[in-house]
Amino acid sequence: MTNILTMIENSKKAKNESIASTVRMPEWMHKFVERLALELDISKHEVMLKLLEHGAEAAQDRLDEVEKAELAQLALAEEVEPQPAVGFHILNTNKTHTDDDHEWMLANKAAAAFYAPWKLNINRIKKGEVVFLYENITGIVAYGRGTGEVQMRDHEGEKDECHYQVLEGFKILEQPISAAAIKKALDRNVVFLRTMSGMPDGQKVLDLIESKKAKP
């Protein structure tokens, strides 16, 4: 309860833009929201927003834990035996958190990731492999091929916390490829929230992209 109250107080100080949305919920949940709003003497809107934020943060933390575990397993596998090239990767530019990193990648024709262990994803990109840059909600907005040459730069004042590769043949798409279109092309589900995922069947996505007009 104290945590929710603190979050609500902090939200009153914030001036972030909000987007209108609707959600249907079970009757028991609606009654709980009403009861909590009455008890805290705040609006139902504030209660639902804070509960959603809290749940989203918990989900993101869990996704981070899973990704860390997977990266640790990949690192161990690499120590035993170098892994074969997968040919294709999809990299989330993390625009939900900041526009700056997303825009930097597009401006510098690069695939980048930040902080350990996520930045080590960039080290996995081998020369000639295709990297799709995925913007949350929008879809794949650009792509290029890895050079296998990992470079480092400071990020938010932290030394070498950005690993990146400048991509060869970099193209920005005039028409982004949506998440739905990607899933349809691959005929399977795709997790877009991870920093970077291998896409062994990525040739199907590349064929779809190259069938559309792209600009250099």
Rank of each mutant, 00 (worst) to 15 (best):
E135H: 09
M105W: 05
I140C: 03
Y143A: 04
D99S: 11
L71G: 13
L208C: 09
E156D: 11
K159T: 07
T195S: 11
S178L: 00
V86A: 10
L38F: 05
W104R: 12
A112Q: 01
A69T: 14
N94P: 04
I19V: 14
M48I: 11
M152V: 08
I177A: 03
N108C: 04
A185M: 00
E9H: 13
L120C: 00
R188I: 03
K95R: 15
E174W: 00
E39P: 09
P200N: 03
G128T: 01
N3Q: 10
V166F: 00
G128S: 06
S211L: 07
I172H: 01
A58N: 05
E53F: 11
K15W: 09
C162F: 05
A69S: 14
K109A: 03
K184P: 03
R35P: 03
K109F: 02
D99E: 11
F88W: 02
A72Q: 15
D187G: 05
I8N: 00
P82H: 12
A113S: 09
A77D: 14
E53I: 11
N94E: 07
T2L: 00
D101R: 15
S11G: 15
S178M: 00
E27S: 11
R194M: 05
L76H: 09
G148T: 03
K95N: 11
A75W: 10
K171Q: 13
A181K: 03
N16M: 04
T147Y: 07
S21W: 08
E70C: 06
A179E: 06
K50F: 00
M1H: 05
T98V: 07
A179N: 03
V33S: 03
A185R: 01
M196R: 02
K213H: 11
T147E: 00
G146E: 12
N189A: 02
K109S: 08
E103C: 02
I19A: 05
K213R: 15
I8P: 02
T93P: 02
D41K: 15
Q83L: 15
A180Q: 09
L38A: 09
S21L: 06
D99G: 08
G87R: 08
V205R: 04
F192P: 01
V191K: 04
H155E: 09
V191A: 06
D154W: 11
F132W: 04
L74G: 08
I177G: 02
E161W: 07
A69I: 12
K184F: 01
S43R: 12
K204C: 14
C162D: 06
H45A: 13
I125A: 04
K183Q: 13
A214Y: 10
K15P: 01
G148V: 05
H45K: 13
D101T: 15
D99T: 07
E67K: 05
E46A: 15
E158A: 11
K44M: 14
A59Q: 12
Q175S: 08
G144H: 06
E135R: 14
F132D: 02
H163T: 04
I137M: 01
D61S: 10
E81Q: 12
Q165K: 07
F88C: 04
H45S: 12
V131G: 10
F192H: 04
I209A: 09
E67C: 07
V131F: 09
A20D: 06
V66N: 10
T195R: 08
K159C: 02
S211N: 14
H45L: 07
L74S: 09
E65P: 01
M196N: 03
T2A: 05
L71H: 13
G55Y: 11
L49V: 12
V66D: 13
E39C: 08
H163D: 05
S197M: 13
S43T: 15
L91S: 11
